[in-house]
Design a protein around this nucleic acid. Structure first.
Lengths: 197, 197
DNA sequence: CGTCGGATTGAACACTGTCAAGTGAGGTGG
DNA sequence: CCACCTCACTTGACAGTGTTCAATCCGACG
């Protein structure tokens, strides 16, 4: 995927909800969040995108979320229309576009699964997802704040903080710093952590 | 959309999770639910499909959910591969496929939004969605059980039942029977029901 | 009329939210 | 180099909401 490289400072908007979706984006460095503001003022984060991830891809002509850089980030920008035209002839490209859509659907479904479980399971699920996607190092680097995680998991910042502490006390994770987390292996490999008590 | 008509009895499987997604389906009568069984045994319903709705459409080669008929239902079945080949030449069809995908993404996003609010807001959101999609009559006919609603909204059957009762006491809905609900107009039109107390 | 499955109701309990206070690391200026 | 500030994060006490477990109700159907 080629495109125009662009830089975004921390907390700056990449696109807004309801804007025409003229571009696709790929993160090359940094991290991005998509979100919606609800009528009652709360913010729901739809997804986090890390280097390599494609976003802005909503299969319609308007964005259904806003997107912001979480930290200083670089993204590649490609015109959607150009891609779609090329995709008519290049089967590989068409395939990649469908795959990206399928991935997006899976992400949403996974998100729904997270939201119906307990606070502890939500946090573990979030960390497992981050661990799987991040560099395969022992420690995960979290680019997002506790508030971002809270708005992603539908919890409060206090509950996130408490849950991190409890998971550390149970020996499930190590908090090297507040933004660097180490997961115990069994948490990575088990499909589901049934009982941590 | 043409295809092979098929009938399914109440609670019978239409397709299973992880099966090859060889077909697309359109409901002609009855109602369908898609769901996943979680590792701890709970069931998460991903969506309900009513007459006219297209399902089995996950943009990948395998189904990410199972699908079942909620009640005696008829669906049209079309081979995906045939559709995809036709879509290469028929721009309208290709467009329809993208639109269906976009709709599915919006459904998931809407679902996520529901899951982060209170029990009362979840139920109201669910009913508004059903009202919008069902026949525009005053009363909504709910084909699904309380347990289905509970598994869709991430709540227990008891909470669903209690919330229905409370909404009726507040004058937001009328329960003609347990499966026939009438919504007050203001609930339909407001983007969000801010305060019902 | 009796039975069965789905739905409702009640009481006790667990979990998460709320509000408020406290802690800690990084950055700035004297 | 240290004092101070700021912002993010953590912790505590308590209230509110949803779950759990159990009993009961209701309607369709034999």
């Amino acid at each position: 995927m080629i495109g125009t490289p662009m830089r975004f400072a921390r907390n700056t908007e990449i696109y807004g909800e309801e804007e025409a979706a003229e571009h696709l984006y790929q993160v090359t460095s940094g991290a991005v969040r998509t979100y919606k503001i609800l009528e009652d003022g709360r913010r729901q984060i739809g997804a986090f995108y890390l280097p390599g991830d494609i976003f802005g891809f909503e299969a319609g002509d308007t964005h259904i979320s806003s997107a912001e850089a979480i930290c200083e980030s670089q993204v590649l920008m490609v015109r959607r229309s150009a891609l779609m035209i090329r995709a008519i002839h290049e089967k590989d490209l068409a395939r990649q576009l469908w795959d990206a859509t399928a991935l997006e659907l899976r992400r949403f479904q996974n998100h729904v699964m997270l939201l119906i479980s307990s606070a502890e399971q939500r946090v573990i699920g979030f960390l497992r997802d981050m661990a799987r996607r991040a560099t395969k190092n022992a420690a995960i680097e979290l680019p997002m704040s506790r508030q971002d995680i809270a708005d992603y998991l539908g919890l409060t910042i206090e509950t996130i903080s408490r849950t991190f502490t409890q998971l550390e006390q149970k020996g499930v994770i190590s908090l090297l710093t507040s933004r660097r987390v180490e997961l115990r292996d069994h948490v990575l490999f088990h499909g589901f952590v049934r009982n941590l008590d």
